[in-house]
Design a protein around this nucleic acid. Structure first.
Length: 432
RNA sequence: GGCCCUAUCGUCUAAUGGUUAGGACAGUUCCCUCUCACGGAACAAAUCGGGGUUCGAAUCCCCGUAGGGUCACCA
């Protein structure tokens, strides 16, 4: 059995699309699982729409996602012209194709058409089983603009053959292209690769996912604070499932589990909320150091390491993390209002003041060099229990944070240090 | 419209002839809790319809219906 070679052949006519990413991922996973490789080439025969910047964008996206690929020799179809010419000539010579004088502009230039044998063609799809077509419906389709320039179907067949592609795994939208390509490939005497057509990713209205439905390029998800691990995990499970009830997978786990047999036949709707859930799960699994690194890369500035655990627990995306950093400015001086300290009057100002005074005394008993959340809690808890936790802890927490919402007061106290804590209590007392 | 593909909770899915049809996201309720977050528990929610085959069908077959894809000198 020959080495498995799969392929990812994007046309550089736009940013790396989320659907393309999943196709690339499935191709990579299949190759990895079977000890093969995925080759990448650019199908840029459409000269008007193909742009170098999109090639770079596609490569950058794959790198960001850590999806490995092998760049083909002469990866651009536009630069492989010499390779196609003999095949076109051979097809004409053998009578499988002919030149036809019918330029649509009436200029008299000649295109090359494939001589359709008008038969029934059956191929086996690894996901769908046998699929049959009557090729008569296709007519004598055009396979080259002229004797030197191949069109998509011809170029694909020749490229796949030259690159030793054994498995063609692509979107369901290519299923009706397959008979044409098999016809050409057999006329050329090439061996048929295995085919697998994976279901499409759908918008919430079940139509093909496109720009009008929101983000479709990986860049956009990246800039929304989605991390690569989460996108990979989510996309892998859209239209495929290894069975069982595990949801969180790493790329290397997926490499071991992937099989085409378990790929679905029906399209799947893209659900941003579930992606965000996966993102939060993967974010929580990052070490504090790694989280800080990602965050730095995302917002281009450092974050106080003491804040990292607090943010990691709360932010579902790096964008949310960024917003939380703005919000969690506890380390800077805070200001107090009576409304805040008394929970809008729910707690009597006099009581709040009394409690703060008592807490001040208790905190004085905690050693400066042992000012941990646990120690602080130990010192204050009995008093809070006795006096009513809400009445005691709310004023303390708002005193320390200056905000309605924040982490708990013990964590904050340890974060700020004993000296600052006592200063803030003083300041709050003055307001009350 | 022709051809092709598909069909389990709102969404992603498990169950490959025998389960009270399971899990996850979202939703609701409750617990934990000074707030936010985390965590825990529970509730609600599905086999597109009709015929077969079978002791037994979400699962196999047929017919409908619905959705999608594709019909370029684009890829």
């Amino acid at each position: 059995m020959s080495t498995v070679i799969t392929r990812f052949p994007p046309s550089p006519t736009g940013h790396l699309h989320i659907g393309s990413v999943r196709t690339a991922l499935f191709n990579y996973l299949y190759a990895a699982k079977n000890g093969g490789t995925m080759v990448l080439r650019f199908e840029d025969t459409d000269k008007e729409r193909s742009k170098p910047e999109f090639e770079e964008d596609i490569l950058a996206g794959l790198n960001w996602l850590s999806i490995p690929y092998t760049l083909a020799d002469n990866p651009r179809q536009s630069e492989r012209g010499a390779l196609y010419q003999p095949h076109i000539a051979r097809l004409i010579e053998s009578g499988h194709a002919y030149e036809a004088e019918e330029g649509k502009d009436g200029s008299g230039k000649k295109v090359v058409r494939f001589k359709n044998p008008n038969t029934t063609l059956v191929f086996t799809d690894e996901i769908r089983g046998e699929v049959s077509f009557d090729t008569t419906d296709l007519g004598d389709f055009v396979i080259a603009k002229n004797v030197d320039e191949p069109l998509y179907h011809l170029a694909v067949v020749i490229d796949d053959h030259e690159m030793g592609v054994t498995h063609v795994i692509r979107g369901e939208d290519h299923i009706s292209n397959t008979p044409r390509q098999i016809l050409i490939l057999e006329a050329l005497g090439f061996t048929r690769p295995s085919y697998a057509h994976i279901p499409l990713i759908l918008a919430p209205d079940r139509s093909k996912l496109s720009k009008r439905h929101g983000a479709v390029s990986v860049n956009e998800y990246q800039s929304q604070g989605i991390i690569a691990e989460a996108l990979i995990n989510y996309l892998a499970l859209l239209g495929w499932n290894p069975g069982g009830e595990q949801e969180i997978y790493t790329l290397s786990e997926l490499e071991n589990l992937f099989t085409l047999e378990r790929v679905h036949k029906g399209g799947a709707i893209f659900d941003m909320e579930k992606l965000v859930w996966f993102n939060h799960e993967h974010l929580k699994r990052l070490s504090d150091e790694e989280f800080a690194k990602r965050l730095k890369h995302f917002r281009h500035s450092d974050t106080d390491p003491r804040l990292i655990p607090l943010i990691k627990e709360r932010a579902k995306t790096l964008t949310e993390a960024e917003a939380l950093i703005e919000e969690y400015d506890f380390l800077n001086p805070v200001s107090h209002t009576v409304e805040l300290l008394t929970q809008n009057g729910k707690i009597a100002a006099a009581d709040a003041s009394t409690h703060l005074h008592a807490l001040q005394e208790l905190l004085g008993g905690v050693a400066d060099d042992d000012f941990t959340p646990e120690r602080v809690k130990e010192a204050l808890w009995p008093y809070a229990e006795a006096q009513g936790r809400g009445a005691v802890l709310w004023p303390l927490r708002t005193t320390l944070s200056g905000r309605e919402k924040s982490p708990d007061p013990f964590t904050l106290a340890a974060l700020l240090g004993k000296k600052t804590v006592l200063e803030r209590i003083e300041a709050a007392q003055k307001v009350l």
